[in-house]
Write a protein that binds this DNA or RNA. Structure first.
Lengths: 340, 340
DNA sequence: TGAACTCTGACTAACGTACCTCATTTTTTG
DNA sequence: CAAAAAATGAGGTACGTTAGTCAGAGTTCA
């Protein structure tokens, strides 16, 4: 009933404890024949290293750094909270997670924080990438020191970072397009699009995916050029209101960034509200969904992203098992009936 | 930098190691004043128990039993695989998971397996509940011995089991109803429903939720009485084909059980295919979604259910942290653009 | 005031692995 | 064949906690 230990392995393989240790931890040189004996014993006994004992013995603590954009962006604040919550109990297992905020959309600031990391002070870093030359260079320096680098939500070129945790925004946009396309039925007309800023990679990707689907499968619908609201509710309201007044055949609305409050405010003036799809599940969007003000919400689950990021760092800096499926973040669709 | 230990706590609280141990592990009696001193020290030091050392010392292994229905049901086989995969690496942390199959829909067999558990041989059990009197009694006996009992996918009355891991099938049915309602647009007519068996609680719940939504928000659509196909493809095909011939205003199809292959086969004969919503994401349903044969898939993620069940048992039998959100299984919607 | 309590401290042996040193054996090489 | 090098063994300490024993101090109560 009780599991076998390295002592059992040594006995069965007829070698010393030291040799077992050398094989299991790849130290010094061991003759192939001896190594084989040990591995054979491991197999027959079904030996599994006791990770509690191992961790205790190598008294190593792991330290990870998370850099998240500061500001009121509710998705980011949510993400921050999830990271902190998930990391807290891990402290008991020797894993420390430090969360720091940096100014958003500011490659220089991000770069400075990355460079400020003392080599050896952290075992891995995760951050929401701003794709600028200076950030790329900073990441190259980190990777040069063999430090695991995880990008969160917004990516860098794949060869630079070790891993990306987030959704594919092209497909998120496509999903929105298909939902709106179906919801609009036979109606022919235009779709108003409200974005944060098209210079943001994820927003641009969503818009592009959205247009793809309309072109492919709903040619009677036309996506209008996006209103860039810079995640600001007033700007969104003003922009959308103006658009709705000047255009009379708007049959659907897609809001792919933040600032949804403004979008909804603009809709209140309408007597006949067309189908609306927005991104990110917040307290507000949830309420609007239940009230029927909007029709669908698309989101990436911040809790899953937080967990995936921590686990990915963990599995890269230890030899921990890594469930690929567990660490992929899906594009979720919420209607008023399947809210979590 | 290095974490504080019970030695530090003892020093700061100005008590002995034994006393710290007594407070931390609730042994014997400790005077309130002394307890307070220790707790104060824990707080100021921010002491967290090193779980590696703790587990090592109490050399306890945890054993959990999973009972899953046997047979070809692909969802169940999938679930089984996920449980095994998730549990494998946990062996290194002293956690053993034993998976056993039992005949499906057989309260007697399930009950026998539950009763066969030696007291003390397992620290918790998870199973797909068949809600029969004998099973209820068996569960009562287990709970009487203070054993954590988790129901998976299909529930028992809440006061019997410790926890349920699965989705709310009423809301899953509602979600299907809303999707079909929106997809049908202005069309007026009937919805064909294919189920496994209405005596199965989850299927009945889905149908009921489905009807709710149609009645509330899509009164121009009428859900037909379900065809009970007993998860058999031929039966589903025959039933649905007959229905489609005898009824000319079927404007949508909802398949809420297994046997989707039959449903699709029946559709192939039609020149004008109405919107189709089915449950469970399989290799097949995935292909049909991409091909446009069906329009949406609703599912519960077996991987999440597996993980949640194991984690829930874990957190109940140790004092491990328990993230409620992490352990809730959502009702997922898949269109062809947001497939995982 | 003494007996019967309750608390507390000091000490120890595990738990299974990592990692170190030093000695000894075996193998390789010139 | 001897010397050098490589491989292995023996044995120890440390990690932080659990869980015990036993002795002694303090408190309560008759």
């Amino acid at each position: 009933m009780t599991r076998s230990t390295i002592h059992d392995v040594a006995r069965v393989a007829n070698v010393s404890l030291s040799t077992v240790d050398r094989v299991l931890n790849g130290r010094n040189c061991v003759r192939p024949a001896t190594r084989e004996k040990v591995e054979e014993a491991v197999r027959t006994l079904g030996y599994v290293r006791n990770s509690a004992a191992a961790n205790l013995s190598r008294k190593r603590r792991l330290r990870f750094l998370f850099l998240l954009p500061s500001g009121a962006n509710s998705f980011m604040r949510n993400l921050e909270e999830e990271v902190v919550c998930y990391a807290r109990p891990l402290a008991a297992d020797g894993i420390d997670v430090v969360v720091q905020v940096v100014p958003p959309f500011d490659g220089g600031a991000l770069c400075r924080e990355l460079d400020a990391m003392q080599p050896g002070s952290f075992d891995g870093v995760a951050f929401v990438a701003v794709d600028s030359p200076e950030v790329r260079d900073a990441v190259k320096r980190l990777r040069h020191g063999n430090l695991p680098v995880v990008t969160l939500v917004s990516d860098l070129p794949a060869e630079l970072r070790t891993h990306f945790i987030g959704i594919d925004n092209i497909w998120a946009g496509r999903t929105a397009g298909r939902l709106l396309g179906r919801f609009c039925g036979a109606a022919r007309g235009k779709i108003a699009v409200v974005a944060g800023a098209m210079m943001m990679q994820d927003h641009a990707a969503r818009y592009s995916g959205f247009r793809q689907v309309l072109a492919e499968d709903f040619p009677h619908l036309e996506a209008l050029p996006p209103i860039e609201a810079l995640d600001d509710a007033e700007r969104a309201e003003a922009g959308l209101s103006a658009l709705l007044q000047s255009t009379d055949d708007v049959v659907g609305i897609y809001s792919l960034g933040a600032g949804n409050r403004g979008v909804v405010a603009a809709l209140r003036k309408l007597e006949d509200v067309p189908p609306v799809v927005v991104h990110e599940l917040t307290e507000h969007s949830r309420r609007w969904l239940l009230a029927g003000t909007i029709d669908a919400v698309i989101r990436q689950d911040p809790a899953r992203e937080a967990r995936s990021a921590v686990r990915t760092l963990l599995s890269m800096s230890q030899g921990k098992p890594f469930h690929k499926e567990e660490n992929c973040v899906g594009i979720e669709i919420f209607l008023r009936d399947n809210l979590p």
